[in-house]
Design a binder for these strands. Structure first.
Lengths: 158, 158
DNA sequence: CGATGCGTGTTATAATGTATCGTTGCTTCT
DNA sequence: AGAAGCAACGATACATTATAACACGCATCG
């Protein structure tokens, strides 16, 4: 992360009632999808929601245990894979990090604005999906998944 | 890489005169930019051009020495960083891999179509750059670099 | 010349991600 | 209820990807 001279708090995550509400909604979504929201999956989501910004897998591993003990890597990676499959979280490839989904819908495409100064990210609507498909069709490709990550500076770090 | 039933050769890379020509052009570009095309940098670029598809850093490390001996990781990572900075190669975040640039211009934005079956990639013109900037402006971000990677199947693997 | 900057080679280590195996706890079928 | 099948878990070990730190060489420039 290229530091900048600004020092400020990153985006706050969820706490208390907001957090519980978001977790309950995730529970519902899983139930409707016939998927199981197990303890480690829920814990991983809670940590992402609390953080409110992208978290490295090993950061989660370190703080995973409610008692302060670390988790085993596969526990967290499995949970993150699940959350990504369900659209409850997204992997940010250019950061090797994961972030809770900010949109409501299940299994949607995502795009991100990422601040290289403070680490804040903003999930945005993927732009020009039709032009992706058009470009792919020109080359004869059939696309099922698109990664879009725009790096720069957030308003607070400009 | 999710296999598919098709078996076919991936895209061929450059050889012989074509390879030397491409390397000479890279030499020229570096000279004009006041950068040094050193031996390891040139070797890394040659390997990428020969491969004609994305290569993992450790694949390059293994075959780096002309005498068949492996290189040390920092040697290759430094060369790849340099090539990326110069726009002579691109990093593909979602593959942890690197590919020689197929466009002529220096330091341009890139986007990729990636076949999850055979590993072929196609570098395409980034679509809708103005819409990226617009979306970023809405959120107050200033963007300097955008990663766009579309995964699917290439014509040969459909 | 001496100092500075950049690139290199080397060693070591950090950070990130997976394979595998045995177990547990549902769900479903009879 | 009992058994079979399956999904997820926990644990160990390991594989892959990437960087830190330091010494050296060589060019440039005051």
């Amino acid at each position: 992360m290229a530091e900048c001279e600004h020092v400020h708090e990153g985006p706050a995550g969820l706490t208390g009632r907001d957090l519980n509400h978001a977790l309950s909604q995730a529970d519902d979504r899983c139930a409707r999808a016939g998927e199981r929201m197990t303890q480690p999956r829920r814990r991983a989501l809670a940590l992402l929601l609390e953080a409110g910004r992208p978290m490295k897998a090993y950061d989660l591993i370190d703080i995973f245990g409610e008692d302060g003990r670390a988790a085993k890597p596969p526990t967290v990676y499995r949970a993150l894979d699940f959350l990504s499959r369900q659209g409850l979280a997204h992997r940010i490839e250019s950061l090797n990090a994961y972030v809770a989904c900010e949109m409501g819908e299940r299994r949607h495409a995502a795009a991100f604005l990422i601040c290289d100064c403070c680490g804040a990210t903003e999930e945005i609507e993927p732009f020009a999906p039709e032009r992706v498909q058009a470009a792919a069709a020109d080359a004869g490709y059939l696309i099922d998944r698109v990664t879009i990550e725009a790096h720069g500076r957030c308003p607070a770090c400009l």
